[in-house]
Structure formats: C-alpha cells, structure tokens
C-alpha cells in the first residue's frame, strides 16, 4: 500500500470516528437526555443551580465561614454537575431503560468513541450552565471578576465539565449492571457539594474527606477558579490535577463499560430491567 492510500485510509478512519463522536453524541443527547425541553432545561439546569448557589451564599453570610466569592465560584463550578453527572448517567442507563441498548451494542464500532461521544454534549452543557450561573450570580451579588481572569476561568470550567462528564459516564456504566443507577447519581451529585470544597472550606474537613475530594472531579477546578477570581492567575498545577482526575475517570468509565457489557452479554441481561 502506498503512502498516499495509507494516508487516505487513515483520514477516512479519523473522519468516521469524529462523525461517530460528534453526530452520534448529538443524537444520543437529544434522544436520551430527559431535560432538553425548554421548561426542564431552564428550570432544572439553569434556575436550580442558581437558587442553590444563593442558598449557600446566605448560609455563608449567616455563619461567616467564608465570603460570597467563595460560594459563588465554588457553586458556579459545581453547577455543571447537574448536567454532567445525570447526563452521563442517562447517556448509558437510558439506552437500557428505553430498550435500545442491544441495538447500540450490536454495532461493530469501537466503544471508546461511541461512549465518549455521548459525554461530549454534557461537557458543553455543563460549561454553559457554569458560565450562566457565574454570570447571573456575579450580577446579582454585585461581585467583580477581573477581566484578565476570564480566559483562565473558561479553561478551568471546561476542564471541570469534562472531568465531571466522564465521572457521570463512569456512573452511567453502572446502569449496565444495576437498575436503580439514578439513586447512585443522586447521592454522587450531593457528595460533590460536600467533598469538592464547593461549600465547605476544605481545610475544615477531616483528612480522609480531603483525600476523597482530591480524586473527585471539580475539587481542583473550584480551587483554581477561586484563585483566578482573586487575581492570583491560573494555577497550572490545579488545572493539570483537574484534567488528570478527568482522565482517570475516563479510563475507569471505559473499563467499567467494557466489563459490564461483557457481563451483560454473558448473562443475556442487556435490555432487562
């Protein structure tokens, strides 16, 4: 095979994979994400995190544990979790719920782009929610964020959404094995509020909780976002840690999806609820 034909074959393969990731991801988002109608999207994904942020801001004001900025940045980062954790879960678990999982897994395509394509819309969705929450809450609370911090903040929020989406995908993988996977997502979303330090200063938490928080998505992003808003510049170490955490969950998601897929095939329980 000549170099040219090899190059063409490779290009075709890359384009096909990209198509699977982008088009497949977009179709699955529309089909499987339960909150795409305007009332649900606005109510659940935009208004709800904003009101939660205000709840913690007033709690913080009452207790004087931290200032408004602490809660604003922490909750803006963690607001992505609603779309990312539940979305990632729905991206896998709803296939089983709607009885279409068998058809998806009959596909000869490689599993990694198939599943990661599904996480992609939630990365963008999570980013949108974080930006919305941050913008509206900043205006409501009359806080200022340095303009110079915005590019860094965008990078941090993107990393946070990406990490949280693959975390959601890893939880969704449990949907191949267990029926009530949304139960796990509910608890996981709440745990993120506590252990990522979004609402409690991490130095006040016990050592083991800090250690768990270190390996959860959003923790490093929340800290990096706070440093940026305080004019401290982008902490590349924290951004790297957030990306590394996300990469870890990506590997975990692929492994869990492969293991549970094999298990479901062996037991013939793919579409059973």
């Amino acid at each position: 095979m000549s170099f040219l034909s090899l190059s063409r074959a490779l290009t075709r393969r890359v384009v096909r994979t990209l198509r699977l990731v982008v088009v497949g991801g977009a179709i699955s988002y529309r089909a499987l994400f339960n909150w795409t109608t305007p009332p649900m999207f606005i109510g659940t994904l935009l208004v709800s995190p904003l009101l939660q942020l205000l709840f913690f801001v007033f709690l913080g004001r009452q207790l004087r544990v931290a200032d408004d900025r602490f809660y604003l940045l922490g909750n803006a980062v963690v607001s992505a979790s609603t779309a990312c954790v539940y979305g990632g879960t729905m991206a896998v678990a709803n296939e089983r719920r709607y009885g279409t999982l068998g058809a998806v897994l009959l596909s000869p395509r490689h599993r990694a782009p198939l599943w990661f394509g599904r996480a992609l819309p939630y990365v963008l969705n999570g980013l949108l929610i974080s930006v919305f929450t941050l913008t509206v809450a900043t205006l409501l609370l009359g806080l200022r964020i340095p303009v110079g911090a915005l590019p860094g903040l965008a990078a941090v929020l993107l990393a946070a959404s990406a990490g949280c989406s693959v975390f959601g995908l890893a939880l969704g993988a449990l949907g191949l094995r267990f029926r009530d996977v949304f139960l796990v997502s509910n608890v996981a979303a709440s745990v993120l509020l506590l252990l990522t330090g979004a609402n409690v200063p991490r130095e006040t938490l016990p050592e083991w909780m800090r250690a768990v928080g270190d390996v959860l998505p959003l923790t490093h992003a929340a800290e990096a976002a706070r440093e940026l808003s305080a004019g401290g510049g982008l902490d590349r170490g924290r951004l790297g840690a957030e990306l590394a955490t996300g990469a870890g969950y990506a590997v975990l998601a692929v492994v869990l999806l492969a293991v549970f897929e094999r298990g479901s095939r062996r037991r013939a329980t793919l579409d059973l609820m």
């Binding site: 109608t37 009332p39 649900m40 606005i42 109510g43 659940t44 208004v47 709800s48 009101l51 939660q52 205000l54 709840f55």
Partner: peptide
C-alpha cells in the same frame, strides 16, 4: 412540565 418547577423549588 411539573418537574421543571419542582427541581428549582427545593433550595
């Protein structure tokens, strides 16, 4: 879309 109203009414 009652759920759309229920979710943000929590906090």
């Amino acid at each position: 879309n009652a759920n759309a109203l229920a979710n943000p009414l929590d906090a």
